[in-house]
Design a protein around this nucleic acid. Structure first.
Lengths: 241, 241
DNA sequence: TAGCAACTGGGTACAATGTTCGCAATAGGG
DNA sequence: CCCTATTGCGAACATTGTACCCAGTTGCTA
């Protein structure tokens, strides 16, 4: 039996028809993770959610890891791209769409860590981005590098955005208590006098609300796109690396 | 008692002197994670490693999460920067050093996911990078965005590099079996005919060995630095965003 | 058509995990 | 000097991922 879940047949050739399907399982697990965090996703819990038992769930996924793979690929499948012909605008749009997906499923960045999930949805997205970058004439491996730069940036940025929420949920403290502890910590950092720039940064971040985190994201995205454009131009104009 | 571990006193004012210290605990945990993966890091295991019991370990860390925070900050503390005066060269050097750290501790990218650890070592690194970017004259928040772009890229790239190793270890399969399964999967993807560019990418990646992954990383890093340089120039020459 | 093999559903069991509790020993502060 | 805060630790508990087994169901084949 193959270890990649998408290589395993969805049902055997004999015996009763399975009463659930992978999509329903993924949806249930995603709903739980969205509502209560990734830690709430246990085999027993998801099984109960779809009205069956843990051991029955193992008829659909070989290991819990496969359940997470299903969740990740299903969550990643939301985006659909309408190519406009302008690669930079398209990449920008993809970046914003990815950010929206990651923010809609706060557990996704964590679940993706160390998991090279390559399900049908992610394959579709990869193919679409390669199609977008094809006119660059760059070697495919380098196109992949460009895509990696973009997706890594988005994931990293959203991870920072969600970090406090995640930490709060994980710590089990009240949000107020957590923020108080955090404020005490930054106060101690400032008081140490060893980190003047970092302290100033804390001040600035506190002064400007989280409202312009959108602007920050867009600015970072522009940096990335600028780098990609530069690389693209190198090939187009024959300039050396 | 504060929830941030670095705000908690390292020992009480009475009673016997603790027989171990946080550094030794972090070192032991890092050694186990390096050798056997993050999954092998359990409270009982680390306690045994330093010759004590699980319940005693709880005198040093309030929760397992704190143990991971200690590990992350200790692992991140390896790098030391010698500023050369050329910010671009310095950032490049930092990027390469970070990649080395992440590759030396394959569990680090995973442990860092969803964990806004801000221990002394990370604070030092942040302050150093802000010092480096100070001449840009950019607002601190935007300097942070630049740093995020860089670190996100490095983390994302190394995560991709380590993904297969991590997946192999996690699956419990033999490396040969895993690669066979993976090859069968990519073959099925090619056979489907739906993903021509992705299939070509697989071919190209297989043809070029992993030897030039270094080159790929450097290329991506250049893209990032190019983007940062562009942003820097905007301010210096007063051009509009 | 009879029967066997493959398959699904699910109850039970097991080892391992994070974490809490209580108790004995030990140090400093009044 | 004694009281209280603190350390080390054994035992216990609920929860977790997962293996095993058995009963019922379907389809292939003789």
């Amino acid at each position: 039996m193959p270890s990649v879940i998408w290589m395993r047949p969805v049902r055997g050739r004999r015996g009763p028809e399975p009463s659930r399907d992978r999509d329903a399982i993924a949806r249930a697990a995603i709903a739980v993770a969205d509502r209560e965090g990734l830690a709430a996703v246990s085999m027993r819990r998801i099984a109960a959610e779809i009205g069956t038992s843990a051991s029955s769930l193992y008829r659909y996924v070989a290991r819990k890891d496969d359940l997470l793979n299903l969740m990740v690929d299903a969550a990643l499948g939301a985006g659909e791209l309408q190519p406009s012909g302008d690669w930079r605008m398209d990449l920008q749009q993809i970046g914003h769409a990815m950010r929206a997906v990651f923010k809609a499923h706060p557990w996704l960045t964590t679940a993706l860590a160390g998991r090279p999930t390559l399900g049908p949805n992610r394959l579709r997205a990869l193919e679409a981005m390669l199609t977008l970058l094809a006119p660059s004439g760059l070697p495919l491996a380098e196109q992949l590098a460009l895509i990696d730069v973009l997706t890594s940036y988005v994931r990293g940025f959203v991870a920072s955005e969600l970090a406090s929420d995640a930490a709060i949920r994980q710590s089990g403290l009240s949000a107020a208590q957590w923020h108080a502890d955090q404020a005490a910590y930054t106060a101690a950092i400032r008081a140490s006098g060893v980190y003047p720039l970092t302290s100033a940064l804390f001040d600035e971040l506190q002064r400007t609300g989280a409202a312009d985190q959108d602007a920050g994201f867009a600015a970072g995205l522009d940096i990335v796109l600028e780098g990609i454009a530069a690389r693209w131009a190198v090939v187009r104009h024959g300039k050396p690396t």
